[in-house]
């Protein structure tokens, strides 16, 4: 700040004061930065580093001078609607809601209701436990419910046939709910307005 005071006095009354003062101030800042960088580099040499890389990997603290590299964050624009990832999607050909009825060694049997058909008629299917994702295996028990779908999965433009089985994680979804859904679907399928 002392140099700024000298500069201000020197150019008082001069019309080009502001421009010249700004120029001197920039020189002063550059000189300060150079001086500080030199000190830092010499300190690093003393440590056997010999490069600036030591500074670049240093943690940033708020009291550091202006010579430190500023870290830039990619902050999303929260006012913009999120550009949803449509490159990866799965469109089902058929969706079932299943309920485990029996577990036999490495397989389980289940009652399956076609969600799209809105029918109270159920099918019976048998699944390999290996088809269940690792984290869902602990959920397999008689009465547990799951979603099973077959369809087309698109991943980065590549379309493939796929099936997906995931166990439901809503604690209070039970056979009663399935029966209620089944009753409702039966009722609505008989409604002539559909």
């Amino acid at each position: 700040m002392k140099s700024e005071t000298v500069a201000r006095r020197k150019f008082i009354g001069n019309k080009a004061f502001s421009d010249q003062f700004a120029e001197i101030r920039n020189e002063y800042v550059e000189s300060y930065l150079f001086h500080e960088m030199k000190i830092r580099t010499e300190q690093l040499k003393g440590l056997g580093s010999g490069t600036r890389s030591g500074i670049e990997t240093e943690g940033r603290s708020y009291d550091m001078g202006p010579s430190r590299k500023v870290v830039n964050f990619n902050i999303p624009n929260i006012n913009e609607h999120y550009g949803f990832d449509f490159k990866n999607h799965f469109t089902s050909v058929q969706n079932w809601h299943g309920e485990v009825t029996e577990i036999i060694e490495s397989t389980f049997k289940a009652k399956l209701i076609d969600i799209k058909e809105l029918s109270h008629i159920y099918e019976v299917g048998e699944f390999e436990i290996n088809e269940v994702p690792m984290d869902d295996k602990e959920l397999i028990q008689v009465g547990a419910t799951f979603y099973f779908s077959i369809g087309y999965k698109t991943e980065n433009g590549t379309v493939m046939r796929a099936s997906l089985l995931r166990f439901q994680r809503l604690p209070d979804w039970s056979c009663k709910n399935i029966d209620t859904a089944s009753d409702w679907s039966n009722e609505i399928s008989n409604d002539p307005s559909w």
């Binding site: 990832d85 099973f148 369809g151 995931r166 439901q168 994680r169």
Partner: peptide
């Protein structure tokens, strides 16, 4: 945007 997960999305919201 994955149809097999529509139900899970609702379950998660309710949960």
């Amino acid at each position: 945007s994955q149809e097999p997960f529509f139900g899970m999305c609702k379950d998660l919201a309710m949960g």
